[in-house]
Amino acid sequence: MARAGLTAAKLTEAAAELADEVGLDKVTVSALARRFGVKDASLYSHVKNLRDLRVRVALLASREMTDRIGAAVAGRAGKEALVAFADAYRGYALAHPGRYTATQMRFAPEEIADSEGLRRSVELTYGMLRGYGLTEPDLTDAGRLLRSTFHGYIHLELSGGFGHPRAVQESWSRALDALHVLLENWPSRHDGSTTR
């Protein structure tokens, strides 16, 4: 029988907090059960298994992150939208490293089929990139470039990988300047400027 007061939403929020404190890899059903002072079995009436719990954290985080990004880019276009988007993305990741790690998991299509946060994330990204005049397949290519740049930078920042004394924020700002120039001058597939 389920313990009174435990719900999937409460467990997900607690798992997200735990992920931010100790890292997503240390979030287990046992660790979460200890946090609530219950036996592991008490949680299985609310979550199927550890994978289900981590996917729930990822979906929660994607909603939170998308809400932050959406509020930041509202009414903005071009470089202003790019910087607002990037700063909101990075700000969320630095404030919630465990939740952010969860958003980078590989998902089965059925796990995320109803994810409003992930769907809105794609819409916000493509909407911002359309402001640069991009269409498919360039939207996908540019979206992948932004995600890999942001993720790589954040991963290095969180792991202490930037040892040079130059302020990390200054380098971030310059990287966004460079991305803006690149997006404004996105190479045409027909002008011979791309290499394979």
Rank of each mutant, 00 (worst) to 15 (best):
R54G: 13
T135N: 03
S121A: 12
R63Q: 01
R99F: 09
R56H: 11
E111M: 00
Y89D: 09
H46Q: 13
R189W: 10
L156C: 12
G23Q: 04
G23K: 09
D52Q: 03
I69P: 05
S159F: 01
T28L: 09
H96A: 11
A88Q: 04
D114W: 01
G192F: 05
A31W: 05
A8P: 00
R68S: 15
A15Y: 02
G91S: 02
V168W: 02
A31H: 04
A84S: 10
L43N: 02
E170A: 10
T195A: 15
G75F: 06
T194E: 10
D25K: 12
R56C: 06
S62H: 02
G78K: 03
G78C: 08
L134F: 03
A95R: 08
T140E: 02
A19M: 12
P165A: 06
A71T: 07
G161K: 00
A93Y: 00
G143S: 04
G70Q: 00
A2P: 08
G163C: 05
S188M: 00
E123H: 01
A113M: 04
K48M: 07
L59S: 06
G78H: 08
T195R: 13
K48C: 01
S30I: 08
R34N: 09
R99V: 13
E21S: 13
V22A: 15
M65C: 06
D20E: 06
T103D: 08
E116W: 02
A2T: 05
H46D: 11
L50D: 13
E116A: 06
A4S: 14
V122W: 00
V122H: 07
V168T: 09
S42G: 03
H96M: 10
L94R: 10
L59D: 01
R76T: 06
T7S: 09
Y153G: 06
S188I: 02
A61H: 04
L182W: 11
E123D: 10
L182Y: 07
L134A: 05
A86E: 08
V83L: 10
G5E: 14
E170K: 03
E136A: 01
E170D: 12
A31D: 08
A88Y: 02
G163S: 04
H46M: 14
L124H: 07
V29W: 03
F150Y: 14
L6G: 01
